[in-house]
Write a protein that binds this DNA or RNA. Structure first.
Length: 409
DNA sequence: CCTCCACAGGAAGCGCAGGAGT
DNA sequence: ACTCCTGCGCTTCCTGTGGAGG
């Protein structure tokens, strides 16, 4: 085995700045999003003048630049010499309940509230007092807002806050990639959140090409990537979903493959290999972040998809669906064989809903179902790969546990 | 037609962890 | 050190829904 980390210190022939290629990187120029950016700014500018702005709701698929645009505007606002406008950027994947969001807001601006132990009401009152102190305008950005469990409560609390506050106010910016999200919302929350609506369309192949080109010129060394490779990566990503993140991932992966081969340039062949790997990796990252039992459920789904199980086919379509109840039974037997206690059926249904929201499985509702009222579930990725991944992660975890059991150094 | 089955998803309640107040 | 709160994950209980079968 080569010396570990040796590559880290060796300068790359391929990459100039990997940071530029990361999906979290916010470039100083966002292409094809001028309209959206001015729209966001227009909604927020009243806040900057000390009036309450309009709430904005932003939606669009993953990798259409929603988060980047928001972060871009947020940074711009932070740079402005306006003291009274304050911003909280909340990633709802982490802060996924009313309580967590509120304490995130509080700890953003009042460091002594970083700790736990305060009740909702107390935090709420603190925030209100803080806003009233000098008529602040608070802009709260809720990224991936659909993940919040008790969103209706949160929105109610925040709008309620607005009427409680004598001077100053709160402006909400909601971001979601779930298009159907609108229908699931309580009508009252809907009307508050959707004061202003903004769609982010998927990128087409030519747009993706330009975006890639922009990043590539700074992320890679000169003459490493040719136009043909860029076009191919863009075309693949556009065909898949119009996801800029996927396009970037493909390019990065292609770079890694070229680097491993020791070649000094990326060709179309690396790109097409990378495209296959990239999607698996996205799935792997998603699943790797899952709590144990949700992962086991995905594992059960994967196993049953492979073995064929007792799935039912729906109107001669190729896609076979699994029945929710049978997946649960399988999940229970898996946990038993691992000598672990299975979670209850109710919680399992909640997990299924979570997994669906994360796009790991697709579940079609009752409709003209096989049975009265059930969910028809299908894995969003190749079951063989998923099975492999989860087995590996389970193995890794037990290895970690063994290490933890070793005497401490 | 009615009843039963198999499931969805809401509501309530439980024990636990962990901070605050005393 | 203790009691009092609170949120959180989870279970228990419940009502609703629609096809299968009598």
């Amino acid at each position: 085995m080569p010396e570990p980390f040796a590559d880290l210190f060796k300068e790359s022939d391929i990459f100039a700045d990997r940071e530029v290629l990361s999906p979290h990187y916010v470039p100083e120029h966002l292409l094809f999003r001028d309209r959206q950016i001015t729209e966001i700014e227009r909604s927020l500018t009243p806040s900057l003048r000390g009036e309450r702005g309009r709430n904005v709701f932003i939606y669009g698929k993953t990798g259409t630049g929603k988060t980047s645009c928001i972060k871009y505007v947020v940074e711009k606002v932070r740079m402005l010499p306006v003291l009274r406008a304050k911003i909280s950027y909340v990633n709802c994947r982490i802060y996924n309940s009313r309580y967590r969001v509120l304490s995130k807001i509080a700890s953003d601006h009042m460091p002594m509230y970083a700790k736990r132990g305060f009740g909702v009401i107390e935090i709420y009152e603190r925030i209100i007092n803080w806003i009233e102190e000098d008529s602040k305008i608070l802009i709260v950005v809720l990224d991936e807002v659909d993940i919040i469990r008790d969103l209706d409560d949160l929105i109610y609390t925040l709008t309620r806050a607005n009427s409680d506050i004598k001077s100053g106010g709160i402006t909400l910016v909601g971001v979601s990639n779930k298009l159907s999200f609108k229908e699931e919302l309580d009508p009252r929350s809907l009307s508050t959140l959707y004061e202003n609506e903004l769609a982010f369309p998927s990128y087409n192949s030519t747009e993706l090409s330009s975006i890639l080109k922009d990043r590539v010129t700074r992320g890679f060394k000169p003459n490493v990537v040719d136009q043909a490779s860029i076009n191919l990566a863009a075309a693949i990503a556009a065909k898949e979903s119009g996801d800029a993140r996927l396009a970037l991932k493909i390019m990065t992966k292609a770079g890694e493959i070229a680097e491993a081969k020791g070649s000094k340039a990326i060709t179309v062949s690396e790109v097409s290999t990378a495209a296959k790997v990239a999607e698996e990796e996205i799935a792997y990252e998603l699943i790797g972040m899952l709590p144990e039992h949700q992962r086991l459920i995905v594992y059960a789904v994967a196993l049953m998809s492979i073995s064929g199980g007792r799935y039912k086919k729906l109107n001669q379509e190729d896609d076979a669906f699994l029945l929710s109840g049978e997946i649960y039974n399988r999940y229970v037997s898996i946990t038993q064989s691992l000598h672990k206690e299975a979670k209850g059926a109710r919680l399992y249904r909640r997990y299924i809903a979570d997994l669906e929201m994360q796009g790991i499985i697709t579940a079609s509702g009752s409709g003209k179902g096989v049975r009265g009222h059930t969910k028809l579930i299908r894995l969003a990725y190749l079951p063989e790969k998923i099975k492999e991944m989860i087995e590996k992660s389970l193995f890794n975890e037990s290895a970690v546990e063994q290490k933890a059991g070793e005497p401490a150094a």
